[in-house]
Amino acid sequence: MELRHLRYFLAVAQEGHFTRAAERLNIVPPALSMQIKALEEELGGPLFVRTSRKVELTEAGRLFQIEAQRTLDQAEKACQTVRRSLRGETGQVRIGFAGNAVFSGKLTHDLRTFRHHYPDAEMVVSEVAPLAQADAILTGQLDIGYTPDHDKLHSPALLAEKIGLWKRIVAMADDHPLSRHPRLTVEMLAAEPLILYDAHGADESLYATLRHLLGHDPHVSHCSASSLSVLTLAAAAQGLALVPEPLMNISVPGVVYRPLDEPELAANLMLVSRKQDNNGATTAFLTIARGMEIRE
């Protein structure tokens, strides 16, 4: 017995006539009659009382009509549930982020857009250090990451896409001597203690670029995996913090920001995911994060 047999049976039961039911099903009446006869043989008795003018259900036919409709409804529900999952309309997507994804507004935009288009899908969002994001995605603890570029993203199992690029600026205590300058150069930073965002880990490329531009190892006084910690240290006059331009949106007492004339020190934002991922919610979220058109 197949689902089509149930559809054939219900069509005859509803129409009360083989010819009309056959027209509705777009098959020829003899074929429909053979299918119903085969169904009755499989069940072990008649489902219809046939006369020259109409077809009526037997008692067994009336019972079968209820169960057949229930079965088809459940099958359709199962199909709809799976289709919604494949489209990303249900299910869960787990997202990790580092600070710049928030301060730039990119993550917030993506989350709001996803919620608008997929209100029944669940988002689990957490702040995760850049280096930890790659491992978490590879082990299945996260589905998507927003992080600066670093070596761990170059795993063959990961897909890392650049979705943001911003100038680097300097955050410093408001009474620092360099705060009198409207713009800074790398040369001005040569003898200054620097505060970097996890410099020897997630921001290793920044450290290497500074070393190249200065001609010597930069004087790094502090490294932190928290953007707020970096700004707090700058406010406490512990050094100059090199931060992405979107962090200017954060007002911290005692901190001023100055532009830095050095394009090589630009800060990027990467969208990270698994190359092989069949989670519909993850696929839908990636479509939004990439700025692609959403198919309704």
Rank of each mutant, 00 (worst) to 15 (best):
L3M: 11
H5C: 11
F9Y: 11
F9C: 09
L10N: 12
A11C: 08
A13P: 11
Q14W: 04
E15W: 04
G16W: 03
G16C: 08
G16D: 07
H17V: 05
T19M: 01
A21E: 03
A22Q: 07
R24W: 02
L25S: 04
N26H: 13
N26Q: 14
N26M: 12
N26F: 06
A31T: 13
L32S: 00
S33M: 07
M34C: 07
Q35Y: 06
K37M: 03
A38E: 09
E40Q: 09
E41C: 05
E41D: 14
G44N: 05
F48V: 03
T51W: 01
V55A: 07
V55G: 08
E56W: 09
E59G: 10
L63N: 14
L63Y: 11
F64K: 02
Q65I: 01
Q65G: 06
I66E: 15
E67C: 02
A68G: 05
A68W: 01
Q69P: 04
R70F: 01
T71G: 06
A75L: 03
K77F: 08
R87V: 02
R87A: 13
E89S: 09
T90W: 03
Q92T: 15
V93R: 02
I95Q: 09
G99M: 04
A101F: 11
L107N: 09
L107F: 08
L107E: 10
R112E: 15
R112V: 14
R115P: 08
Y118N: 11
P119L: 05
D120N: 14
A121D: 05
M123E: 13
S126R: 14
S126N: 12
P130W: 05
A132W: 06
L142S: 12
P148N: 08
D151H: 11
K152A: 14
P156T: 06
L158G: 04
A160C: 07
A160G: 06
A160E: 03
K162N: 12
W166Q: 04
R168T: 14
D175F: 08
P177G: 06
R180G: 12
R180A: 15
H181G: 04
H181C: 13
T185V: 08
E187R: 13
L189V: 09
L189W: 05
L189N: 09
L189S: 10
A190D: 06
L194C: 03
I195Q: 01
Y197L: 10
Y197H: 12
A199M: 06
H200A: 10
H200W: 04
H200D: 10
G201W: 00
S205H: 08
T209F: 00
L214G: 05
G215H: 01
V220C: 06
C223F: 03
S224N: 09
S226N: 12
S226E: 13
S226L: 09
A234Q: 05
A236E: 15
A241R: 02
L242I: 02
V243S: 00
V243H: 00
V243G: 01
N249G: 14
S251R: 13
G254H: 10
R258I: 01
L260Y: 02
D261S: 11
E262G: 02
A267M: 03
M270C: 02
L271I: 01
S273F: 00
K275F: 01
K275M: 04
D277M: 00
N279H: 04
T282A: 09
T283D: 05
I288D: 03
G291W: 01
R295K: 14
